[in-house]
């Protein structure tokens, strides 16, 4: 899977799981998710579950940081790191 495919899948997962009224294709890779999409702690939990289920990765306690959930780029980097 290419880097762009991974980011697109992450965007689609976020839009679907958070019931966002947004087009995944129009989400910027470095767009601030919390500020631009009103993502709160409940949403973050959904994103964690979505990433684990879709990409078969597992979060450790130490992984939880606000920076990780900043944008699609940071999430994609995290997924790549976990899968490598």
């Amino acid at each position: 899977m290419s880097d762009q495919q991974l980011k697109q899948q992450i965007k689609e997962m976020i839009v679907e799981r958070l019931f966002l009224d947004a087009d995944p294709a129009e989400m910027g890779d470095d767009e601030n998710l919390m500020e631009n999409y009103g993502i709160d702690s409940v949403n973050l939990f959904e994103i964690v579950v979505g990433l684990e289920e879709q990409f078969e990765i597992s979060f450790e306690d130490e992984d939880f940081s606000v920076d990780l959930f900043a944008n699609v780029n940071s999430l994609a980097d995290f997924v790549e790191r976990k899968r490598s």
Binding site: F45, E62, S65
Partner: peptide
């Protein structure tokens, strides 16, 4: 799942208060 919710909430609360987040 419940522990994660707690950690995420602690992380977000700390972030909004301008502190270093440490949900763990």
């Amino acid at each position: 799942q419940n522990l994660r919710r707690t950690m995420i909430k602690a992380m977000m609360t700390a972030h909004e208060g301008g502190e270093e987040s440490d949900g763990a």
